[in-house]
């Protein structure tokens, strides 16, 4: 996996996440790595790149008020995707609640495209 590749990819306006899937046990792993399958122990030759939709439900979230480097406050989310993966990323949502549907989006921040989770209606708007 090249250092430069993004962890997400856009296809027909939908943001997919770039994980790996174990061809021995079928587990989807994110973030991607080439070390081995945490679920069954298969070595890295069993891990194949696997794109899965970034949409899912909010497993949890929090507002971060203190950070040594980043501007605060900001929100982070832990999202349960349809691939049964827990994925964490920045959340842009005024009043989130556990169990709510969210999806990935890409926003250009300081000239750099960044992955964020948003509520589906905000993307359509």
């Amino acid at each position: 996996m090249s250092e430069k590749r993004e962890l997400w990819v856009e296809q027909s306006g939908v943001i997919f996440l770039r994980g790996v899937k174990c061809d021995r046990c079928g587990s989807v792993l994110f973030p991607p790595q080439a070390y081995g399958c945490e679920a069954c122990g298969a070595d890295e030759t069993h891990l194949r790149e696997f794109l899965f939709p970034s949409s899912g439900t909010l497993n949890s979230f929090t507002t971060v008020h203190v950070h040594p480097k980043l501007e605060t406050p900001y929100k982070v989310a832990e999202v349960k995707t349809e691939a049964r993966q827990l994925v964490r990323g920045r959340l842009e949502h005024e009043h989130p609640s556990v169990g709510e549907a969210v999806m990935g989006a890409v926003e250009v921040i300081d000239g750099t495209p960044q992955f964020i989770f948003v509520v589906p209606s905000e993307v359509e708007a």
Binding site: L17, P31, T62, V66, L70, R90
Partner: peptide, 24 residues
Amino acid sequence: VRSLDEGLVVPFSHFAMLAERYMA
């Protein structure tokens, strides 16, 4: 291993998320 939350989730945010989930 790169992730989407690099630097965003410090230990207290991890546990704050557990708190949010526990309350829910």
